[in-house]
Write a protein that binds this DNA or RNA. Sequence first.
DNA 1: GTAGGGATACACT
DNA 2: GTGTATCCCTACT
Length: 181
Amino acid sequence: MAPELLGKILFHKRRGVETSGRIVEVEAYLGDEDPASHAYRGPTSRNQVMFGPPGFAYVYFTYGSHFCVNVVTEKEGRAGAVLIRALEPLQGMTAQKRRRRRQKLTDLASGPGKLTQALGIGRKENGLDLSGKDLFLEDDGFECNTKPRRTPRIGIRQARSKLYRFVVKDSPYLSMKGKLR
DNA sequence: GTAGGGATACACT
DNA sequence: GTGTATCCCTACT
């Protein structure tokens, strides 16, 4: 599911402002076999959306200041989600720049915490249907000219050897450029 | 390189 | 209930 999401569009309309971006970086998180996953220790009030039906948004708050958005991928009762890590901004650039207080397009959504800020995604979006009116994923037929590249996931300690991160190779909108973690 | 920040999980009383 | 280590990060120096 994770590489399938590369090239698709994430759209969010908040207070009449429409913003969107094309997905260029994702990470897969499994359930009870994946110690890096929030769902590893079973359902809790925080991660319950991950155990719900697929096609819904799991939004969580982390590091005291950031939201991250995931796409739930498994059938109800089974945990699994794809973290959206970076977007190429498409619509509503003015709003995205204002929310991010940044002007460069490569600084708007080039990280999981940045893209939620740029698109105005937060607590209220947790558990929403990703085929909704104001929040949805879209396939506009775009095809990447390169195959998805697989790498280790970013910012985790457990299960680092798993190649569960997928990126559009050479996109200027990827996260963590110039840093190794 | 590191400060900042809040939620969470788990070990303890 | 309290203490604390950790966390799917970002912005600054």
